[in-house]
């Protein structure tokens, strides 16, 4: 527990700096609100759009009054975090779960800096925890703690169920972020449904080991989720089969997201998530 809170503080410290300097603004411009909301009625001044003249008030006061609007800004950010055992692996310095925590921290803090509500949904083969969207930095820190406190041992990634639950709980249009390794199948329908209502971004957590195995002799690995073992010779033929398999899986993921209208981003455990996210935001700004 001690270690987790230390980690949270560290993550908070690093991310806050990033958010304050770069991400808050970027976040604001990339994730616009769903529409305009009525603000006040003031006297018409020349140049105002005549469409917005409030005729009721005008007739009562005798001079033209117009309605003013402001952008609706209270956006809800819902983050779906995969907490299955398959995330507890990487060949690098940090594992995928830590990477997920890191990304969550950056985006959630940026959201909070823009006065948005942040909620999260932790899932494995079922929905493990659901935290209602609320404003405030403290609320975000609580969620980071929750993500980092997840112990290895949860089996399965029921992404379909997570998407369905998110669709049901998010009443208003919001932003939905999925942090997962997408080692799941059969989530296409639910993802499409979710993307129809919300702005969905799929962030795929990857690792160099997802692409390539090191050359070796006979090795026995154990899949932490299914408990099945994978016994293989690390020779050229086997390694090629392995690479081809995961390359194909990646292609399928891309296609699924594309057809569902989901924006995609891949972040590897080797990468600096801040850099990757920044690139992503800039790309999205240009698009919109």
């Amino acid at each position: 527990m001690e270690e987790i809170s230390r980690k949270v503080r560290q993550l908070h410290f690093v991310s806050r700096k990033l958010v304050d300097t770069i991400f808050a603004g970027n976040y604001h411009s990339v994730f616009k609100g769903p529409g305009l909301e009525f603000d006040e009625v003031r006297e018409y001044s020349p140049g105002d759009d005549t469409r917005f003249i409030d005729w009721n008030v005008t007739s009562r006061m005798g001079s033209p009054y117009t309605k003013t609007f402001r952008e609706e800004r209270e956006v809800v950010l819902q983050v779906l975090v995969d907490t299955s055992s398959s995330l507890f692996y990487s060949s690098g310095q940090i594992n995928k779960r830590d990477l997920a925590g890191h990304i969550f921290a950056i985006i959630a803090l940026a959201a909070v800096a823009n006065n948005d509500k942040v909620g999260s949904l932790l899932f494995s083969d079922r929905v493990e925890e659901q935290i209602q969207p609320r404003k405030g930095r403290k609320h975000v820190l609580k969620q980071i703690t929750q993500i980092l406190a997840v112990k290895e041992g949860r089996k399965g990634s029921n992404l379909a169920l997570a998407c369905k639950t998110a669709s049901q709980t998010m009443k208003r249009r919001g932003i939905c972020l999925i942090l997962s390794d997408f080692r799941a199948a059969g989530y296409k329908t639910e993802l499409t449904m979710l993307a129809r209502k919300h702005d969905v971004i799929a962030i795929r957590l990857t690792d160099p080991l997802d692409r390539e195995l090191p050359a070796s002799g006979l090795v026995q690995l154990e899949d932490p989720e299914s408990g099945q073992s994978l016994k293989f010779m690390g020779n050229r033929k086997t390694r090629q089969q392995y690479s081809e398999y995961w390359e194909h899986e990646r292609y399928l993921w891309h296609k699924t997201c594309q057809s569902a209208g989901v924006d995609v981003l891949e972040i590897s455990t080797e990468d600096d998530p801040a850099v990757k996210l920044l690139h992503f935001f800039e790309r999205r700004k240009k698009k919109s």
Binding site: Y89, S90, S91, G92, Q93, I94, N95, D98, L209, P214, S216, G217, V219, L221, G234, T269
Partner: peptide, 15 residues
Amino acid sequence: RKGHRLLGKLAGQWR
């Protein structure tokens, strides 16, 4: 020796 080296590549620094 071989196993130790391979473990470095497979297991990741974090563990």
